[in-house]
Design a protein around this nucleic acid. Structure first.
Length: 565
RNA sequence: UGGGGGAUCGUCUAGCGGUAGGACGCCGGCCUUUGGAGCCGGCUACCUAGGUUCGAUUCCUAGUCCCCCAGCCA
């Protein structure tokens, strides 16, 4: 095979294509993305969104519904409903007018339940939760029938009606499917279909005090919407017989096909809803949009574009085996995307003063700098150059190790878009011995672009002009976890694996003057350092930058592999 | 342990009885006024054992290992 088909095929797309070819569902493709509004979307959801919307979009006449799966009023919140929609739109997908709520189906779902009761396929059980658990049996032992399993259809109908009417307290009764308490598939041992919850729902208010369970509401919602392919994650695989049972026994008007795939796992990332919520609630992170989180809001604030996320989802593929994707792959697609679009600028994160002894003290030159070597159409800009500059502390070594090409006493480097300079002196704090400034000389003949200058230097470093630079804050992010989440023992407090260095705030940074007043959300590359995104915390005087991802750093690798000196 | 799934380079992922491919990563080299980007080359894989077949990653059998299920969560 020489080239991959457009939009990497996978076993699900193949099945959908085969169904279409066979004329199943009249050749129609209707998918759905069914989040529960009890948390914010993360990159794992993005995989599902790309799959569901992607498949629909590439099928003629195909459509993907957005359905808020809001059947549990105790955990859900309208705040999430809005946020979910915002995130999906931001990712670049459109459900058109196909926005649905499971809660809108409550009346019809109730009718389906009545149908089931009338067929003697469901009954009201009055066992307590604890007793029900005992009656359910274990993985190896069959369950036992509830003593209430043989209630008459009439009694069940009456009881269920009373449940709806609010005659009973929470937990007094449930509606159960009547399937098989001895089934080797535990999900088929008379699963709960409805439970009593005297809790107001964010959409239906107090209209209901009984709420349908996932296993009942989901297949029927799919069926009512005419979903052809109901794509979900692996843990629902052994619910599929139940899904099919509900559709059949409730006499649903349509039979969707459930297909399961493996959810996304990412190294060093917190992906579980529970843990994400814990981080936010315990204020271990700044909020749902903390740039260290793999939430869509966090990634966006960090500076990851929707295009990069979609490319990532394309790269990781879709299969049924459990997999943990390396963070490096995400970083790669982010760099690939930002390399093409992010304008280059110069910023010094940890400044070291450089005095050019032979440069006129009051002189200022405007130098030409290329905005993006990958995109000539964005042109050039002017940057000021003067007698006093700042360079990166990391770009100078008093005692340079092997293969360190940057500045050192007696050595020369090129200043990007400017001149070649030579280090002629080191100023130290007499007290601490810390290096406070460098004296250098510049070579007038080596001005960038001057055609006569052929001299090669080993390194080019970035800089800013001291009198012109503006102060900035830069936030560097490192993995939130010190290990893969899968390697954390279940009996241990996972928060002990939080990386204390996950956020590094640098407040003494200096950036080139053109960055004054940049709009939040702007992407830039700080030359030689990485891609950064302007944070909403920025003020008119002081921009704040989030490091989206660093540039690949060949020197860091060399240095790491060198024996310690 | 009953049931349901899954095992292909370090990591993702292709393969659909005919030379095991791609991406990330890693290692070299070229190029370079970003140690960036780009370009070139290299590295490493079919869970095990049998069987069917001219030929098996693919089909069959028996194992092994991993994941999921005992919520009135989804």
């Amino acid at each position: 095979m020489e080239t991959l088909p457009p939009s990497h095929s996978n076993f699900i797309r193949e099945r959908v294509a085969a169904d279409r070819a066979a004329g199943k569902h009249g050749g129609l493709v209707v998918t759905r993305f069914p989040p529960e509004p009890n948390g914010h979307l993360h990159i794992g959801h993005a995989k599902s969104i790309c799959l569901n919307f992607g498949i629909a979009n590439e099928s003629p006449g195909g459509i993907c519904h957005l359905r808020l799966d809001d059947t549990n009023p105790t955990t859900e919140d309208p705040e999430y409903v809005e946020a979910i929609q915002e995130d999906i739109r931001w990712l670049g997908f459109d459900w058109h007018d196909k926005l649905f709520y499971a809660s809108d189906y409550f009346e019809r779902l109730y009718a389906f339940a009545v149908t089931l009761i009338k067929k003697d396929k469901a009954y009201v059980d009055s066992l307590s939760a604890e007793h029900m658990r005992e009656y359910r049996g274990t993985l190896t032992e069959p369950g036992r029938n509830s003593p209430f399993r043989n209630r008459s259809v009439e009694e069940n109908l009456a009881l269920f009606e009373c449940m709806r009417a609010g005659a009973f307290p929470n937990g007094a009764h449930v509606l159960r499917a009547k399937i098989d308490m001895a089934s080797p598939n535990i999900n088929l041992r008379d699963p709960v279909l409805y439970r009593i919850r005297h809790t107001a729902h964010y959409r239906t208010g107090t209209a209901w005090c009984i709420y349908p369970a996932y296993d009942f509401a989901h297949p029927l919602s799919d069926a009512m919407e005419g979903i052809t392919h109901s794509i979900c994650t692996l843990e629902f695989e052994d619910h599929r017989p139940l899904y099919d049972w509900v559709v059949t026994e409730a006499n649903a008007p349509h039979r969707p096909q459930q297909i399961e795939f493996a959810r996304l796992n990412l190294t060093f990332a917190v992906m579980s809803k529970r843990k994400l919520l814990e981080l936010v609630e315990k204020k271990l992170v700044a909020g749902w949009d903390d740039p260290r989180l793999p939430t869509l809001k966090g990634l966006r604030r960090r500076g990851v574009t929707p295009e990069a996320i979609r490319a990532f989802c394309e790269h990781i593929g879709v299969a049924k085996r459990d997999a943990v994707v390396e963070m490096q792959l995400l970083e790669h697609v982010i760099r690939e995307d930002l390399n093409k679009r992010a304008p280059r600028v110069m910023a010094v994160l940890k400044p070291l003063k450089v005095i050019l002894d032979n440069y006129p003290e009051q002189a200022v030159e405007e130098l030409d700098a290329v905005n993006n070597p990958e995109d000539p159409s964005v042109g050039i800009r002017k940057i000021p150059f003067s007698h006093t500059l700042y360079i990166e502390q990391d770009d100078f070594r008093e005692d340079p190790p092997k293969q360190f090409f940057r500045l050192a006493p007696g050595r020369e480097v090129r200043l990007r878009y400017a001149y070649i300079i030579t280090c002629v002196g080191v100023v130290k704090d007499p007290q601490t011995g810390a290096i406070t400034a460098l004296h250098c000389t510049y070579d007038q003949e080596t001005k960038s672009g001057a055609s006569q200058e052929q001299r090669k230097v080993k390194a080019t470093i970035h800089w800013v002009s001291a009198p012109h630079a503006i102060p900035a804050e830069v936030r560097l992010y490192n993995p939130l976890l010190t290990t893969d989440p899968s390697k954390i023992p279940a009996n241990q407090d996972w928060t002990t694996y939080l990386n204390p260095q996950s956020l590094e705030r640098l407040t003494e940074c200096l950036v080139e003057p053109g960055l004054r007043g940049v709009q939040p959300g702007t992407h830039v590359q700080f030359e030689r350092q990485g891609y950064f995104c302007v944070d909403p915390d920025s003020s008119a005087q002081t921009p704040v930058f989030n490091r989206t991802v660093s540039l690949k750093d060949a020197w860091a690798k060399i240095e790491k592999s060198q024996p310690p000196r």
